[in-house]
Simulated assay, not measured.
Amino acid sequence: MRLNEISYSDARPVDGYGPGFFRIGGEVFSGSVLTSVKGTSQWGGYEDLTSLLALEGEIDVLFVGTGSEIAHVPAPLREELEAAGIGVEGMTSPAACRTYNVLLSEGRRIALAALPV
């Protein structure tokens, strides 16, 4: 097996997560998080559209982690983001974290908004 060193641009990868927290770039965040090349901050959940729309022009796809269970991203949220040119992919938070890290390592224009497990 060949192992390669992964380098991330300015964004920080998700190092881990657990009940009520995420560890991103070595820093622990309680509750929901939003992370992208612009940095990592608390996220107010599905009602916090303003912080997501601030990523307009910066990202192509937003991964929405829905917690430990798969759920639909609320239609109004999805519609607003897609109208702003941001693709939305909903999945469980563990799957969203893994997908985010893989695509981040490829230099993709992505962000992660995740509810805790």
Rank of each mutant, 00 (worst) to 15 (best):
Y8M: 09
Y8K: 06
A11H: 11
R12W: 05
R12P: 01
G18V: 09
G18C: 07
P19R: 04
F22P: 07
R23V: 15
G26I: 13
G26L: 14
E27S: 00
V28F: 02
F29H: 14
S30F: 00
S30M: 05
S30W: 01
G31F: 02
S32F: 02
S32M: 08
S32L: 03
V33E: 01
S36R: 02
K38Y: 00
K38G: 01
T40F: 03
S41H: 01
W43Q: 08
W43M: 02
G45P: 00
G45A: 04
Y46P: 00
Y46L: 05
Y46C: 03
Y46I: 01
E47L: 03
D48M: 09
D48N: 12
L49M: 11
L49H: 09
T50C: 07
T50R: 15
S51R: 07
S51G: 11
A54H: 10
A54Y: 08
L55E: 07
L55Y: 05
E56L: 00
E56Q: 15
E56K: 15
E56R: 15
I59D: 01
D60N: 08
D60H: 13
V61C: 12
L62G: 06
L62A: 09
L62P: 05
S68D: 05
I70S: 14
I70F: 12
A71K: 15
A71E: 13
H72E: 08
V73P: 07
P74E: 03
L77A: 06
L77M: 09
L77C: 02
E79L: 14
E79W: 07
E79D: 14
L81F: 10
E82W: 12
A84Y: 09
A84R: 15
G85F: 08
I86S: 11
I86A: 06
G87C: 11
V88A: 14
G90R: 07
T92Y: 07
S93R: 05
A95R: 03
A95N: 00
C97R: 04
C97I: 09
R98M: 08
R98K: 12
T99K: 12
T99N: 12
Y100R: 06
Y100E: 10
L104H: 02
G107W: 00
R108H: 10
I110A: 10
A111Q: 03
L112F: 10
A113W: 06
A114V: 08
A114C: 12
A114E: 02
L115E: 01
L115V: 04
L115C: 04
L115Y: 00
P116S: 07
V117W: 09
